[in-house]
Simulated scan of single mutants.
Amino acid sequence: MIRPPLHALQGFVATARLGNLSRAAESMHLTISALSHQIRGLEERLGQRLFVRNPRGVELTADGQQLFDRVAEHLDAIEHALRPFGASRDEKLTLTLMPSFATSWLVPRLPAFLAAHPQLEINLQSTIRVVDFERDTDIDAGLRYGPGQWPGLESVHLFDDYLTPIASPALIERLGRPTLETLGDFPLLGAPGGRWSDWFARFGGKAPRRYVANFDDSETLHRAAIEGMGIVLGRLTLAWPLIDANRLQLLFDERLKADFSHFLVYPPRSRAHRGLGVFKAWVLEEAARYQAAQT
């Protein structure tokens, strides 16, 4: 009988759930090379290919899906059974959040929190995937950007986000600084309509007949602005580190409230998690301080 090592099955399940080798390796505190070696060894033992690569990461083959369906719940049961023999569950807090929000807002503030609460271990799982808390039972809570209502989850409002035109210093030096009335004469990044229309309707000026380029996520838009491609209607939460580093500059004091806001979300099972209670109190204080500085 083929008996693959348990750690190889754990690596397989983590990779299947995250759909990405680098994130799975990070979650298991392994190098990508070590995790890849585990999975190759598992495939050789079973004589089956378990994953195929795609532009976003990896996905299960039919054989891989069959293996996942058979072993994942049993590994979860083993982990659950062993928890009483390890560190207290309340001393470990696993959070899911977008990589861009982790980098721009949370991580710069975390050292002070961890210094004040050295008994608490924070595990951040930064991913663009919307986590299913019913399936991913190892995740305690999440930081999300959205409308504030997610079925089956409790949500706590942290702060609103705002939009304002920003541009690279090089573009400003090359073309000058626009006024509210002349903004539409400058190269703008975005799509016709949308929030740019709201901007011009509220603050005046005339929208351009065409925009230079559009991208489907804020982080890429900000990157294009850094490269001097044009002026972007930037999200301040993501843009502040770039502004502080003088890679982008604010053009106006005027701001639009974004369609969505930032929330702390968690399933009912996490209500009694003492570590989450400590984090919740802290992140609400940080959010209030940040919101006050924006208005």
Rank of each mutant, 00 (worst) to 15 (best):
V13G: 07
I39P: 00
L21S: 10
D216T: 10
V131S: 11
I139Y: 02
S261T: 08
L6G: 02
R271M: 10
P169N: 08
L21N: 12
V13E: 05
H29P: 00
R56G: 12
G205R: 04
H222G: 13
G142R: 01
M28F: 04
D136H: 09
L6A: 10
L9K: 09
F252A: 07
A14H: 04
R40V: 15
T164D: 06
K280H: 14
A72E: 07
D217W: 00
F85I: 08
D63L: 07
Y145R: 09
G57R: 06
A8T: 05
Q125Y: 13
L158Y: 02
A141S: 06
L67R: 11
G41D: 09
E26R: 14
A167H: 01
F263Q: 03
T96V: 15
N123L: 12
A201M: 03
G275W: 02
H117L: 06
L124G: 09
P5I: 10
T127M: 04
R49I: 05
A81Q: 06
T164I: 02
K257W: 00
H262D: 05
E173A: 15
A258I: 03
Q38S: 12
V58M: 12
F260M: 07
F252K: 12
F200R: 07
E79G: 11
A239D: 03
L6W: 03
R209H: 12
R202D: 09
G205N: 06
L248P: 03
I78Y: 03
A287T: 11
L106E: 07
T94V: 13
E59S: 13
L75G: 05
R247E: 15
S33F: 07
L6I: 11
G64A: 12
R210Q: 15
L75Y: 02
G230V: 07
Q65S: 14
D138R: 08
F159D: 01
F12Y: 11
L256H: 02
H74V: 09
L60M: 08
L264A: 10
K92F: 01
R289K: 13
T94N: 02
Q294M: 14
R83P: 00
R70H: 08
A213Y: 00
A34K: 12
G228L: 00
L106C: 07
F215M: 10
G142N: 03
E44H: 10
N123R: 13
V52K: 13
E121N: 07
N214H: 14
R144I: 15
R53V: 08
V52E: 15
F252M: 06
R247L: 14
G193Y: 01
I243H: 01
G41E: 10
P178Q: 11
F159R: 04
I166D: 04
P84D: 09
P178G: 10
V212D: 08
T94D: 02
R255I: 02
R135C: 07
G194Y: 01
R209P: 00
S218H: 14
R177D: 03
L284R: 11
E91C: 04
P147V: 04
L284S: 08
L242H: 01
F133G: 04
A34Q: 10
T15L: 12
R210V: 14
E44S: 13
A62P: 00
R3P: 00
L284V: 12
D140L: 06
L264G: 10
E154L: 07
L158V: 09
G205F: 02
D161V: 06
T127L: 04
L171Q: 05
L60N: 05
R202G: 05
P151I: 04
H80L: 05
D185V: 00
P187Q: 12
W105D: 04
R83A: 15
R177H: 08
R17D: 15
R45L: 15
